[in-house]
Design a protein around this nucleic acid. Sequence first.
DNA 1: CCTTCATTTTCCAGTTGATGGAAAGTAGGG
DNA 2: CCCTACTTTCCATCAACTGGAAAATGAAGG
Lengths: 249, 249
Amino acid sequence: MTDSRATGVQTVTRALTMLTCFDGGEELGVSEIAKRQDLAVSTTHRLLQSLVDAGFLDKDKTSNRYRLGSALAAYGQISYRQHRIYLSEPYLEQLAATTGASASLAMRHGHDVVLLGFSRWRESDGHVLQGVRLPLHASALGKVFLAWSDTDDEDIASLPRAATTPRAITDVAGIREELVRTRERGYGFNDEELTPDFRTIGLPIRDSDGVVRFALGLRGPTELMIDARIPFFVDLARVTADEIAAVLL
Amino acid sequence: MTDSRATGVQTVTRALTMLTCFDGGEELGVSEIAKRQDLAVSTTHRLLQSLVDAGFLDKDKTSNRYRLGSALAAYGQISYRQHRIYLSEPYLEQLAATTGASASLAMRHGHDVVLLGFSRWRESDGHVLQGVRLPLHASALGKVFLAWSDTDDEDIASLPRAATTPRAITDVAGIREELVRTRERGYGFNDEELTPDFRTIGLPIRDSDGVVRFALGLRGPTELMIDARIPFFVDLARVTADEIAAVLL
DNA sequence: CCTTCATTTTCCAGTTGATGGAAAGTAGGG
DNA sequence: CCCTACTTTCCATCAACTGGAAAATGAAGG
Protein backbone atom coordinates (compact mmCIF):
# COMPACT_ATOMS: atom_id res chain seq x y z
CA MET A 1 0.00 0.00 0.00
CA THR A 2 3.04 2.28 -0.23
CA ASP A 3 3.73 4.65 -3.09
CA SER A 4 4.41 2.91 -6.35
CA ARG A 5 4.89 6.31 -7.97
CA ALA A 6 5.26 5.02 -11.50
CA THR A 7 1.94 6.38 -12.72
CA GLY A 8 0.03 9.60 -12.89
CA VAL A 9 0.98 13.21 -12.69
CA GLN A 10 2.72 14.41 -9.58
CA THR A 11 1.04 17.81 -9.49
CA VAL A 12 -2.45 16.41 -9.75
CA THR A 13 -1.77 13.69 -7.20
CA ARG A 14 -0.47 16.30 -4.78
CA ALA A 15 -3.55 18.44 -5.21
CA LEU A 16 -5.97 15.57 -4.74
CA THR A 17 -4.06 14.15 -1.79
CA MET A 18 -4.42 17.56 -0.22
CA LEU A 19 -8.15 16.99 0.04
CA THR A 20 -7.57 14.18 2.53
CA CYS A 21 -6.59 16.85 5.04
CA PHE A 22 -10.26 17.77 5.10
CA ASP A 23 -11.60 14.27 5.71
CA GLY A 24 -12.32 15.20 9.29
CA GLY A 25 -14.42 18.16 8.25
CA GLU A 26 -11.94 20.70 9.56
CA GLU A 27 -11.09 24.16 8.25
CA LEU A 28 -7.42 24.69 7.55
CA GLY A 29 -5.07 27.44 6.49
CA VAL A 30 -2.33 27.29 3.88
CA SER A 31 0.60 26.77 6.20
CA GLU A 32 -1.12 24.05 8.18
CA ILE A 33 -1.84 22.13 5.00
CA ALA A 34 1.69 22.69 3.72
CA LYS A 35 3.06 21.26 6.94
CA ARG A 36 0.89 18.14 6.79
CA GLN A 37 1.68 17.51 3.15
CA ASP A 38 5.34 18.45 3.51
CA LEU A 39 5.21 20.97 0.67
CA ALA A 40 6.36 24.56 0.32
CA VAL A 41 3.70 27.05 1.30
CA SER A 42 3.90 28.79 -2.05
CA THR A 43 3.30 25.52 -3.85
CA THR A 44 0.48 24.64 -1.51
CA HIS A 45 -1.08 28.01 -2.00
CA ARG A 46 -1.08 27.62 -5.75
CA LEU A 47 -2.54 24.12 -5.67
CA LEU A 48 -5.24 25.29 -3.31
CA GLN A 49 -6.14 28.01 -5.77
CA SER A 50 -6.77 25.41 -8.42
CA LEU A 51 -8.97 23.41 -6.09
CA VAL A 52 -10.93 26.51 -5.16
CA ASP A 53 -11.31 27.56 -8.79
CA ALA A 54 -12.85 24.18 -9.54
CA GLY A 55 -15.17 24.42 -6.53
CA PHE A 56 -13.60 21.49 -4.71
CA LEU A 57 -12.68 23.73 -1.83
CA ASP A 58 -14.26 26.88 -0.47
CA LYS A 59 -12.10 29.64 0.85
CA ASP A 60 -13.32 31.87 3.62
CA LYS A 61 -12.48 35.37 2.49
CA THR A 62 -11.91 36.74 5.95
CA SER A 63 -10.17 33.90 7.73
CA ASN A 64 -8.29 32.65 4.66
CA ARG A 65 -9.09 29.13 5.66
CA TYR A 66 -10.30 26.37 3.41
CA ARG A 67 -13.04 23.81 3.69
CA LEU A 68 -14.64 21.25 1.37
CA GLY A 69 -16.48 22.91 -1.48
CA SER A 70 -19.85 22.58 -3.06
CA ALA A 71 -18.60 20.87 -6.21
CA LEU A 72 -17.85 17.85 -4.05
CA ALA A 73 -21.40 17.83 -2.74
CA ALA A 74 -22.72 18.02 -6.29
CA TYR A 75 -20.41 15.34 -7.65
CA GLY A 76 -21.24 13.24 -4.64
CA GLN A 77 -24.92 13.36 -5.52
CA ILE A 78 -24.24 12.59 -9.16
CA SER A 79 -21.86 9.77 -8.33
CA TYR A 80 -24.27 8.39 -5.78
CA ARG A 81 -27.00 8.32 -8.38
CA GLN A 82 -24.73 6.92 -11.06
CA HIS A 83 -23.79 3.98 -8.86
CA ARG A 84 -27.46 3.50 -8.05
CA ILE A 85 -26.67 3.18 -4.40
CA TYR A 86 -30.21 4.19 -3.56
CA LEU A 87 -31.38 0.83 -4.88
CA SER A 88 -30.14 -0.74 -1.67
CA GLU A 89 -32.52 1.30 0.42
CA PRO A 90 -35.56 -0.99 0.35
CA TYR A 91 -33.41 -3.99 1.28
CA LEU A 92 -31.98 -2.13 4.24
CA GLU A 93 -35.41 -1.03 5.36
CA GLN A 94 -36.70 -4.55 5.24
CA LEU A 95 -33.76 -5.85 7.22
CA ALA A 96 -34.28 -3.17 9.83
CA ALA A 97 -37.98 -3.94 10.03
CA THR A 98 -37.38 -7.67 10.41
CA THR A 99 -34.71 -7.40 13.08
CA GLY A 100 -35.71 -4.26 14.93
CA ALA A 101 -32.12 -3.12 14.60
CA SER A 102 -30.74 -0.32 12.41
CA ALA A 103 -29.40 -1.19 8.98
CA SER A 104 -26.91 0.94 7.08
CA LEU A 105 -24.54 0.94 4.16
CA ALA A 106 -21.02 2.32 4.28
CA MET A 107 -17.91 2.70 2.21
CA ARG A 108 -14.29 3.06 3.10
CA HIS A 109 -12.63 6.39 2.66
CA GLY A 110 -9.01 6.68 3.73
CA HIS A 111 -8.76 5.94 7.42
CA ASP A 112 -12.47 6.06 7.97
CA VAL A 113 -15.72 4.38 7.17
CA VAL A 114 -18.30 6.79 5.79
CA LEU A 115 -21.99 6.10 6.25
CA LEU A 116 -23.90 6.66 3.06
CA GLY A 117 -26.79 9.05 2.71
CA PHE A 118 -29.71 6.83 3.30
CA SER A 119 -28.46 5.02 6.36
CA ARG A 120 -31.52 4.29 8.42
CA TRP A 121 -30.28 4.05 11.91
CA ARG A 122 -33.28 4.68 14.06
CA GLU A 123 -31.70 6.30 17.01
CA SER A 124 -34.08 7.73 19.53
CA ASP A 125 -32.40 11.10 19.18
CA GLY A 126 -33.05 11.18 15.45
CA HIS A 127 -29.48 12.11 14.60
CA VAL A 128 -28.69 12.41 10.93
CA LEU A 129 -26.10 9.78 10.19
CA GLN A 130 -25.26 10.30 6.55
CA GLY A 131 -21.65 11.28 6.17
CA VAL A 132 -20.77 10.17 9.68
CA ARG A 133 -17.28 8.76 9.85
CA LEU A 134 -16.33 5.80 11.99
CA PRO A 135 -12.81 4.61 12.78
CA LEU A 136 -11.70 1.49 10.92
CA HIS A 137 -10.32 -0.33 13.97
CA ALA A 138 -13.23 0.12 16.34
CA SER A 139 -16.30 -0.39 14.20
CA ALA A 140 -17.84 -3.52 12.76
CA LEU A 141 -17.99 -1.84 9.37
CA GLY A 142 -14.37 -0.80 9.52
CA LYS A 143 -13.21 -4.28 10.50
CA VAL A 144 -14.91 -5.61 7.39
CA PHE A 145 -12.80 -3.41 5.15
CA LEU A 146 -9.60 -4.16 7.02
CA ALA A 147 -10.17 -7.91 7.28
CA TRP A 148 -10.77 -8.45 3.56
CA SER A 149 -8.10 -6.23 2.06
CA ASP A 150 -4.73 -7.77 2.95
CA THR A 151 -3.95 -5.40 5.78
CA ASP A 152 -0.49 -5.84 7.26
CA ASP A 153 0.84 -4.63 10.60
CA GLU A 154 2.28 -1.57 8.98
CA ASP A 155 -1.13 -0.56 7.70
CA ILE A 156 -2.64 -1.15 11.14
CA ALA A 157 0.09 0.87 12.81
CA SER A 158 -0.61 3.80 10.50
CA LEU A 159 -4.25 4.02 11.58
CA PRO A 160 -5.50 6.42 14.19
CA ARG A 161 -6.46 4.04 16.97
CA ALA A 162 -8.21 6.10 19.59
CA ALA A 163 -10.51 4.44 22.12
CA THR A 164 -13.94 5.84 22.91
CA THR A 165 -14.84 3.02 25.30
CA PRO A 166 -12.69 0.73 27.46
CA ARG A 167 -13.50 -2.22 25.21
CA ALA A 168 -11.87 -0.74 22.12
CA ILE A 169 -8.89 -2.69 20.84
CA THR A 170 -6.08 -0.26 20.20
CA ASP A 171 -2.84 -2.24 20.02
CA VAL A 172 -1.57 -3.48 16.67
CA ALA A 173 -1.36 -7.15 17.70
CA GLY A 174 -4.84 -7.07 19.16
CA ILE A 175 -6.29 -5.58 16.00
CA ARG A 176 -4.44 -8.09 13.84
CA GLU A 177 -5.96 -10.95 15.85
CA GLU A 178 -9.39 -9.36 15.71
CA LEU A 179 -9.11 -9.25 11.92
CA VAL A 180 -8.24 -12.95 11.89
CA ARG A 181 -11.30 -13.65 14.01
CA THR A 182 -13.36 -11.51 11.68
CA ARG A 183 -12.26 -13.51 8.64
CA GLU A 184 -12.94 -16.78 10.44
CA ARG A 185 -16.38 -15.68 11.54
CA GLY A 186 -17.16 -14.23 8.15
CA TYR A 187 -18.49 -10.98 9.57
CA GLY A 188 -17.29 -7.98 11.53
CA PHE A 189 -18.46 -7.52 15.08
CA ASN A 190 -18.31 -4.53 17.34
CA ASP A 191 -19.07 -5.26 20.96
CA GLU A 192 -19.54 -1.88 22.65
CA GLU A 193 -16.14 -0.78 21.43
CA LEU A 194 -17.36 2.49 19.97
CA THR A 195 -20.56 3.25 21.87
CA PRO A 196 -21.50 1.79 25.25
CA ASP A 197 -24.42 -0.63 25.16
CA PHE A 198 -24.40 -0.88 21.39
CA ARG A 199 -23.31 -3.77 19.22
CA THR A 200 -22.95 -3.93 15.45
CA ILE A 201 -22.65 -6.70 12.90
CA GLY A 202 -20.82 -5.85 9.67
CA LEU A 203 -20.96 -7.79 6.41
CA PRO A 204 -18.85 -7.31 3.32
CA ILE A 205 -20.38 -6.51 -0.06
CA ARG A 206 -17.94 -7.53 -2.75
CA ASP A 207 -17.77 -6.91 -6.46
CA SER A 208 -17.12 -9.61 -9.02
CA ASP A 209 -13.38 -9.41 -8.34
CA GLY A 210 -13.94 -10.14 -4.67
CA VAL A 211 -13.01 -6.61 -3.62
CA VAL A 212 -15.05 -5.29 -0.72
CA ARG A 213 -16.74 -2.19 -2.07
CA PHE A 214 -19.33 -1.60 0.62
CA ALA A 215 -20.17 -2.89 4.05
CA LEU A 216 -23.60 -3.53 5.48
CA GLY A 217 -24.11 -2.75 9.15
CA LEU A 218 -26.76 -4.00 11.56
CA ARG A 219 -26.67 -2.14 14.82
CA GLY A 220 -28.68 -2.13 17.99
CA PRO A 221 -28.58 -1.98 21.75
CA THR A 222 -26.89 -4.93 23.43
CA GLU A 223 -30.18 -6.02 24.98
CA LEU A 224 -31.47 -6.58 21.45
CA MET A 225 -28.23 -7.94 19.99
CA ILE A 226 -27.82 -10.70 22.57
CA ASP A 227 -25.42 -13.54 21.81
CA ALA A 228 -28.22 -16.02 21.16
CA ARG A 229 -29.65 -13.89 18.37
CA ILE A 230 -26.40 -13.00 16.64
CA PRO A 231 -26.24 -16.05 14.33
CA PHE A 232 -29.80 -15.47 13.20
CA PHE A 233 -29.15 -11.77 12.61
CA VAL A 234 -25.98 -12.58 10.71
CA ASP A 235 -27.87 -14.92 8.42
CA LEU A 236 -30.50 -12.32 7.69
CA ALA A 237 -27.89 -9.63 7.13
CA ARG A 238 -25.92 -11.89 4.82
CA VAL A 239 -28.96 -12.46 2.66
CA THR A 240 -29.51 -8.71 2.48
CA ALA A 241 -25.84 -8.12 1.68
CA ASP A 242 -26.03 -10.62 -1.16
CA GLU A 243 -29.16 -8.99 -2.50
CA ILE A 244 -27.54 -5.59 -2.44
CA ALA A 245 -24.38 -6.96 -4.07
CA ALA A 246 -26.52 -8.37 -6.86
CA VAL A 247 -28.22 -5.04 -7.40
CA LEU A 248 -25.23 -2.73 -7.15
CA LEU A 249 -22.36 -4.66 -8.65
CA MET B 1 -16.96 34.23 -16.89
CA THR B 2 -14.17 33.52 -19.35
CA ASP B 3 -10.73 32.29 -18.40
CA SER B 4 -8.79 34.72 -16.29
CA ARG B 5 -5.90 32.29 -16.28
CA ALA B 6 -3.77 34.24 -13.82
CA THR B 7 -4.24 31.83 -10.94
CA GLY B 8 -3.84 28.19 -10.13
CA VAL B 9 -1.91 25.38 -11.67
CA GLN B 10 -2.63 24.45 -15.25
CA THR B 11 -2.18 20.72 -14.78
CA VAL B 12 -4.51 20.52 -11.83
CA THR B 13 -7.11 22.70 -13.47
CA ARG B 14 -7.02 20.49 -16.55
CA ALA B 15 -7.51 17.36 -14.48
CA LEU B 16 -10.40 18.78 -12.50
CA THR B 17 -12.05 20.26 -15.55
CA MET B 18 -11.93 16.80 -17.03
CA LEU B 19 -14.41 15.65 -14.42
CA THR B 20 -17.07 17.88 -15.96
CA CYS B 21 -17.18 15.44 -18.86
CA PHE B 22 -18.88 13.07 -16.44
CA ASP B 23 -21.53 15.48 -15.20
CA GLY B 24 -24.09 13.62 -17.26
CA GLY B 25 -23.23 10.31 -15.64
CA GLU B 26 -21.73 8.86 -18.80
CA GLU B 27 -18.86 6.44 -19.22
CA LEU B 28 -16.11 7.67 -21.48
CA GLY B 29 -12.86 6.45 -23.00
CA VAL B 30 -9.55 8.25 -23.17
CA SER B 31 -9.80 9.50 -26.72
CA GLU B 32 -13.34 10.78 -26.29
CA ILE B 33 -12.29 12.79 -23.26
CA ALA B 34 -9.18 14.07 -25.05
CA LYS B 35 -11.34 15.26 -27.90
CA ARG B 36 -13.76 17.10 -25.65
CA GLN B 37 -11.01 18.73 -23.66
CA ASP B 38 -8.85 19.39 -26.70
CA LEU B 39 -5.81 17.70 -25.21
CA ALA B 40 -3.37 15.10 -26.49
CA VAL B 41 -4.47 11.57 -25.72
CA SER B 42 -1.22 10.80 -23.96
CA THR B 43 -1.67 13.79 -21.68
CA THR B 44 -5.28 12.88 -21.06
CA HIS B 45 -4.33 9.32 -20.27
CA ARG B 46 -1.82 10.44 -17.68
CA LEU B 47 -4.19 12.87 -16.01
CA LEU B 48 -6.88 10.22 -15.89
CA GLN B 49 -4.45 7.91 -14.14
CA SER B 50 -4.01 10.46 -11.38
CA LEU B 51 -7.75 10.82 -10.99
CA VAL B 52 -8.17 7.06 -10.82
CA ASP B 53 -5.34 6.70 -8.31
CA ALA B 54 -7.10 9.17 -6.06
CA GLY B 55 -10.42 7.38 -6.44
CA PHE B 56 -12.11 10.29 -8.21
CA LEU B 57 -12.71 8.11 -11.24
CA ASP B 58 -13.21 4.40 -11.64
CA LYS B 59 -11.79 2.63 -14.61
CA ASP B 60 -13.49 -0.41 -16.04
CA LYS B 61 -10.73 -2.93 -16.56
CA THR B 62 -12.30 -4.59 -19.55
CA SER B 63 -13.81 -1.67 -21.45
CA ASN B 64 -11.12 0.85 -20.48
CA ARG B 65 -13.78 3.41 -19.89
CA TYR B 66 -14.01 5.78 -16.98
CA ARG B 67 -16.83 6.82 -14.69
CA LEU B 68 -17.14 8.85 -11.49
CA GLY B 69 -15.40 7.18 -8.59
CA SER B 70 -16.28 6.33 -5.03
CA ALA B 71 -14.06 8.99 -3.50
CA LEU B 72 -16.48 11.54 -4.88
CA ALA B 73 -19.40 9.79 -3.22
CA ALA B 74 -17.51 9.76 0.07
CA TYR B 75 -16.41 13.37 -0.15
CA GLY B 76 -19.93 14.28 -1.15
CA GLN B 77 -21.29 12.76 2.05
CA ILE B 78 -18.63 14.46 4.16
CA SER B 79 -19.12 17.80 2.45
CA TYR B 80 -22.86 17.47 2.76
CA ARG B 81 -22.55 16.91 6.46
CA GLN B 82 -19.96 19.63 6.91
CA HIS B 83 -22.27 22.20 5.35
CA ARG B 84 -25.07 20.89 7.54
CA ILE B 85 -27.39 20.81 4.58
CA TYR B 86 -29.52 18.23 6.34
CA LEU B 87 -30.65 20.94 8.74
CA SER B 88 -32.92 22.24 6.02
CA GLU B 89 -34.88 19.01 5.91
CA PRO B 90 -37.48 19.76 8.59
CA TYR B 91 -38.23 23.14 7.02
CA LEU B 92 -38.77 21.53 3.65
CA GLU B 93 -41.01 18.88 5.12
CA GLN B 94 -43.12 21.46 6.84
CA LEU B 95 -43.45 23.50 3.66
CA ALA B 96 -44.47 20.40 1.76
CA ALA B 97 -47.00 19.46 4.42
CA THR B 98 -48.51 22.93 4.47
CA THR B 99 -48.83 23.33 0.73
CA GLY B 100 -49.39 19.79 -0.42
CA ALA B 101 -46.66 20.35 -2.99
CA SER B 102 -43.16 18.89 -3.06
CA ALA B 103 -40.33 20.90 -1.55
CA SER B 104 -36.69 20.47 -2.46
CA LEU B 105 -33.28 22.04 -2.23
CA ALA B 106 -30.83 22.30 -5.11
CA MET B 107 -27.48 23.68 -6.01
CA ARG B 108 -25.93 24.74 -9.28
CA HIS B 109 -23.27 22.58 -10.82
CA GLY B 110 -21.92 23.69 -14.18
CA HIS B 111 -24.73 23.74 -16.70
CA ASP B 112 -27.15 21.94 -14.43
CA VAL B 113 -29.07 22.19 -11.25
CA VAL B 114 -28.50 19.22 -8.96
CA LEU B 115 -31.15 18.15 -6.49
CA LEU B 116 -29.69 17.45 -3.09
CA GLY B 117 -30.05 14.21 -1.26
CA PHE B 118 -33.04 14.81 0.88
CA SER B 119 -35.32 16.30 -1.75
CA ARG B 120 -38.80 15.28 -0.75
CA TRP B 121 -40.69 15.35 -3.93
CA ARG B 122 -43.63 13.11 -3.38
CA GLU B 123 -44.17 11.75 -6.81
CA SER B 124 -46.67 9.00 -7.10
CA ASP B 125 -44.06 6.79 -8.74
CA GLY B 126 -41.71 7.18 -5.78
CA HIS B 127 -38.74 8.03 -7.94
CA VAL B 128 -35.54 8.81 -6.11
CA LEU B 129 -34.70 12.39 -6.93
CA GLN B 130 -31.44 13.00 -5.19
CA GLY B 131 -28.74 13.76 -7.69
CA VAL B 132 -31.21 14.42 -10.47
CA ARG B 133 -30.00 17.11 -12.82
CA LEU B 134 -32.26 19.73 -14.33
CA PRO B 135 -31.38 22.15 -17.12
CA LEU B 136 -30.75 25.73 -16.05
CA HIS B 137 -32.92 27.34 -18.70
CA ALA B 138 -36.05 25.25 -18.31
CA SER B 139 -36.45 24.80 -14.57
CA ALA B 140 -37.60 27.19 -11.88
CA LEU B 141 -34.55 26.28 -9.83
CA GLY B 142 -32.20 26.90 -12.73
CA LYS B 143 -33.72 30.27 -13.51
CA VAL B 144 -33.02 31.31 -9.96
CA PHE B 145 -29.31 30.70 -10.39
CA LEU B 146 -29.19 32.38 -13.77
CA ALA B 147 -31.27 35.38 -12.77
CA TRP B 148 -29.18 36.34 -9.77
CA SER B 149 -25.68 35.81 -11.11
CA ASP B 150 -25.12 38.44 -13.80
CA THR B 151 -25.69 36.13 -16.73
CA ASP B 152 -25.02 37.73 -20.10
CA ASP B 153 -26.17 36.60 -23.52
CA GLU B 154 -22.90 34.82 -24.09
CA ASP B 155 -23.47 32.71 -21.00
CA ILE B 156 -26.99 31.92 -22.11
CA ALA B 157 -25.82 31.00 -25.59
CA SER B 158 -23.32 28.54 -24.12
CA LEU B 159 -26.01 26.58 -22.30
CA PRO B 160 -27.56 23.42 -23.64
CA ARG B 161 -31.09 24.59 -24.34
CA ALA B 162 -33.07 21.53 -25.27
CA ALA B 163 -36.83 21.50 -25.01
CA THR B 164 -38.71 18.64 -23.36
CA THR B 165 -42.11 20.30 -23.75
CA PRO B 166 -43.44 22.84 -26.26
CA ARG B 167 -43.54 25.52 -23.59
CA ALA B 168 -39.80 25.49 -22.98
CA ILE B 169 -38.07 28.75 -23.86
CA THR B 170 -35.01 27.92 -25.91
CA ASP B 171 -33.92 31.10 -27.69
CA VAL B 172 -31.36 33.39 -26.12
CA ALA B 173 -33.52 36.51 -26.21
CA GLY B 174 -36.47 34.67 -24.73
CA ILE B 175 -34.38 33.34 -21.89
CA ARG B 176 -32.87 36.76 -21.26
CA GLU B 177 -36.35 38.24 -20.94
CA GLU B 178 -37.49 35.40 -18.72
CA LEU B 179 -34.58 36.15 -16.39
CA VAL B 180 -35.64 39.80 -16.25
CA ARG B 181 -39.15 38.69 -15.35
CA THR B 182 -37.72 36.37 -12.74
CA ARG B 183 -35.78 39.18 -11.09
CA GLU B 184 -38.84 41.44 -11.16
CA ARG B 185 -41.06 38.78 -9.64
CA GLY B 186 -38.45 37.81 -7.13
CA TYR B 187 -38.84 34.11 -7.79
CA GLY B 188 -38.30 31.60 -10.56
CA PHE B 189 -41.30 30.01 -12.19
CA ASN B 190 -41.55 26.98 -14.41
CA ASP B 191 -44.88 26.62 -16.15
CA GLU B 192 -44.92 23.11 -17.64
CA GLU B 193 -41.68 23.82 -19.48
CA LEU B 194 -39.94 20.70 -18.27
CA THR B 195 -42.76 18.30 -17.41
CA PRO B 196 -46.31 18.52 -18.71
CA ASP B 197 -48.89 19.45 -16.09
CA PHE B 198 -46.29 20.40 -13.50
CA ARG B 199 -45.35 23.83 -12.25
CA THR B 200 -42.54 24.84 -9.96
CA ILE B 201 -41.72 27.92 -7.90
CA GLY B 202 -38.03 28.56 -7.20
CA LEU B 203 -36.60 30.85 -4.54
CA PRO B 204 -33.00 31.92 -4.06
CA ILE B 205 -31.10 31.19 -0.87
CA ARG B 206 -28.25 33.66 -0.61
CA ASP B 207 -25.26 33.89 1.64
CA SER B 208 -24.20 37.06 3.43
CA ASP B 209 -22.53 38.34 0.25
CA GLY B 210 -25.79 38.04 -1.66
CA VAL B 211 -24.52 35.13 -3.73
CA VAL B 212 -27.16 32.52 -4.48
CA ARG B 213 -25.81 29.33 -2.99
CA PHE B 214 -28.93 27.18 -3.07
CA ALA B 215 -32.40 27.30 -4.50
CA LEU B 216 -35.60 26.13 -2.89
CA GLY B 217 -38.17 24.53 -5.14
CA LEU B 218 -41.89 24.02 -4.61
CA ARG B 219 -43.39 21.79 -7.22
CA GLY B 220 -46.77 20.32 -7.93
CA PRO B 221 -49.35 19.51 -10.57
CA THR B 222 -50.83 22.52 -12.30
CA GLU B 223 -54.24 21.77 -10.79
CA LEU B 224 -52.67 22.40 -7.39
CA MET B 225 -50.40 25.24 -8.42
CA ILE B 226 -53.19 27.36 -9.91
CA ASP B 227 -52.54 31.04 -10.52
CA ALA B 228 -54.66 32.15 -7.60
CA ARG B 229 -52.56 30.19 -5.14
CA ILE B 230 -49.15 31.15 -6.46
CA PRO B 231 -48.71 34.36 -4.41
CA PHE B 232 -49.61 32.51 -1.25
CA PHE B 233 -47.26 29.65 -2.03
CA VAL B 234 -44.49 32.09 -2.86
CA ASP B 235 -44.90 33.80 0.48
CA LEU B 236 -44.73 30.50 2.33
CA ALA B 237 -41.75 29.36 0.31
CA ARG B 238 -39.96 32.64 0.89
CA VAL B 239 -40.33 32.25 4.63
CA THR B 240 -38.92 28.75 4.39
CA ALA B 241 -36.07 29.95 2.19
CA ASP B 242 -35.20 32.63 4.73
CA GLU B 243 -35.27 30.11 7.55
CA ILE B 244 -32.98 27.79 5.65
CA ALA B 245 -30.64 30.65 4.77
CA ALA B 246 -30.43 31.52 8.44
CA VAL B 247 -29.58 27.96 9.37
CA LEU B 248 -27.12 27.14 6.60
CA LEU B 249 -25.28 30.36 5.94
C1' DC C 1 -6.36 -17.39 -39.16
C1' DC C 2 -4.70 -13.19 -40.67
C1' DT C 3 -5.53 -8.24 -41.81
C1' DT C 4 -7.34 -3.86 -40.76
C1' DC C 5 -8.78 -0.23 -38.09
C1' DA C 6 -9.65 2.14 -33.72
C1' DT C 7 -8.24 2.76 -29.32
C1' DT C 8 -5.29 2.52 -25.39
C1' DT C 9 -0.75 2.60 -23.50
C1' DT C 10 4.19 3.45 -23.37
C1' DC C 11 8.30 6.02 -24.58
C1' DC C 12 11.22 9.96 -24.98
C1' DA C 13 13.44 14.40 -26.08
C1' DG C 14 12.11 19.33 -25.86
C1' DT C 15 10.66 22.88 -23.23
C1' DT C 16 6.80 24.44 -20.81
C1' DG C 17 5.27 25.48 -16.60
C1' DA C 18 5.64 23.89 -11.69
C1' DT C 19 8.62 24.70 -7.80
C1' DG C 20 10.22 26.83 -3.45
C1' DG C 21 13.10 30.34 -1.38
C1' DA C 22 12.73 35.00 -0.37
C1' DA C 23 10.38 39.28 -0.15
C1' DA C 24 6.22 41.85 0.24
C1' DG C 25 1.71 42.28 2.11
C1' DT C 26 -1.89 41.44 6.07
C1' DA C 27 -3.75 40.59 10.26
C1' DG C 28 -4.07 39.71 15.00
C1' DG C 29 -2.18 40.23 19.87
C1' DG C 30 0.10 42.16 23.63
C1' DC D 1 2.91 50.60 18.06
C1' DC D 2 5.80 46.80 17.38
C1' DC D 3 6.16 42.03 17.04
C1' DT D 4 4.88 37.74 15.29
C1' DA D 5 2.59 34.52 12.37
C1' DC D 6 0.46 33.85 8.34
C1' DT D 7 -0.85 34.56 3.49
C1' DT D 8 0.30 36.09 -1.01
C1' DT D 9 3.32 37.45 -4.80
C1' DC D 10 7.61 37.25 -7.39
C1' DC D 11 11.11 35.07 -10.07
C1' DA D 12 15.19 32.26 -11.55
C1' DT D 13 15.94 27.39 -11.85
C1' DC D 14 15.21 22.98 -13.46
C1' DA D 15 12.05 19.15 -12.48
C1' DA D 16 8.45 17.17 -14.59
C1' DC D 17 4.67 17.86 -17.87
C1' DT D 18 3.71 17.66 -22.68
C1' DG D 19 2.53 15.63 -27.13
C1' DG D 20 4.17 13.28 -31.21
C1' DA D 21 5.25 8.83 -32.53
C1' DA D 22 5.69 4.03 -31.83
C1' DA D 23 4.17 -0.12 -29.59
C1' DA D 24 0.44 -2.88 -27.70
C1' DT D 25 -4.21 -4.27 -27.38
C1' DG D 26 -8.53 -5.68 -29.07
C1' DA D 27 -12.58 -5.78 -31.88
C1' DA D 28 -14.50 -6.49 -36.64
C1' DG D 29 -14.42 -8.52 -40.95
C1' DG D 30 -12.55 -11.05 -44.95
